[in-house]
């Protein structure tokens, strides 16, 4: 009996020492001790933060979202019957055009309800990703910079380079226009506007303005997004349940 007790005490002491060391680790890294546990979620979350990394690996001091990590996750979400909806969190400064368009096309071609929230910033190539969801939200303080696609660094100085760049830009414009309520004219006006950005061409669209232009569907945050995704899930599942009855 005593031995058992001693054993148990020994174990709890061991547990405590291992707990305290992991606790110290967590306080050092997170600044907090524990997070609450909750049941499984039928809505998954995809966060697209920092720069969108494409064909070329960016230096490690950049915070990046690697598109090759996200594409298989999107397929997994599409395949998993337990996952009913997807919320996309966006806080990005843009990045690789083709990686961004790949993500946007993947999200827009998913059969499950998708809702995006633009938090902080959804600049440049973040714009097509934001509008690719079934319903998009922007928080009142978030901004989206719309500006022309441009090149820096070494460029082959032939007219074809600029034609290629123009076509690239056309792909972005076409995607945004076909997946949001903004008119092509209006989007191009914003893209090529002068005087809005200091010494640059383009427009910085803030929260409510993005909704007024028809670029984003609504102003809202987590609560609105969760309500919308649940509503979309109910809509897609509604008729099937009636057939069963």
């Amino acid at each position: 009996m005593d031995k058992d007790m001693q054993k148990k005490e020994g174990q709890t002491q061991d547990d405590q020492s291992s707990n305290s060391s992991s606790l110290v680790q967590k306080i050092q890294s997170l600044g907090q001790t524990n997070v609450p546990q909750a049941p499984d979620s039928n809505i998954h979350v995809l966060s697209i933060v920092g720069q969108i990394e494409g064909h070329i690996q960016l230096p490690p001091q950049n915070k990046t979202t690697k598109y090759e990590h996200l594409l298989p996750q999107l397929i997994a979400i599409e395949q998993n019957p337990k996952i009913e909806g997807l919320v996309i969190l966006l806080n990005t400064v843009g990045g690789d055009v083709e990686a961004g368009l790949a993500l946007a096309e993947m999200i827009s071609s998913m059969s499950k309800p998708t809702v995006s929230i633009v938090l902080g910033g959804g600049h440049s190539i973040g714009v097509p990703i934001a509008v690719s969801a079934d319903h998009s939200f922007i928080v009142p303080t978030a901004t989206m910079t719309i500006h022309p696609v441009r090149l820096t660094g070494l460029v082959i100085g032939v007219p074809q380079t600029f034609e290629y760049l123009d076509k690239m830009q056309e792909r972005v414009i076409n995607f945004v226009v076909s997946h949001s309520n903004i008119k092509e004219e209006k989007f191009k006006d914003l893209m090529f506007a002068k005087g809005n950005l200091t010494r640059d061409i383009g427009t910085n669209v803030v929260g409510h303005d993005a909704v007024d232009y028809g670029l984003i569907d609504g102003v809202g945050g987590v609560k609105e997004a969760m309500e919308k995704v649940n509503e979309l899930i109910d809509n897609t599942q509604g008729p099937q349940q009636e057939v069963i009855q």
């Binding site: 494409g54 230096p59 001091q61 843009g94 690789d96 961004g100 972005v172």
Partner: peptide, 19 residues
């Protein structure tokens, strides 16, 4: 590769060696 971002190239690719 074409980057579509308001960041300057030097912000993305600094000259010092990466750690």
């Amino acid at each position: 590769m074409i980057l579509y971002t308001p960041l300057a190239e030097t912000d993305i690719f600094p000259h010092e060696a990466g750690e």
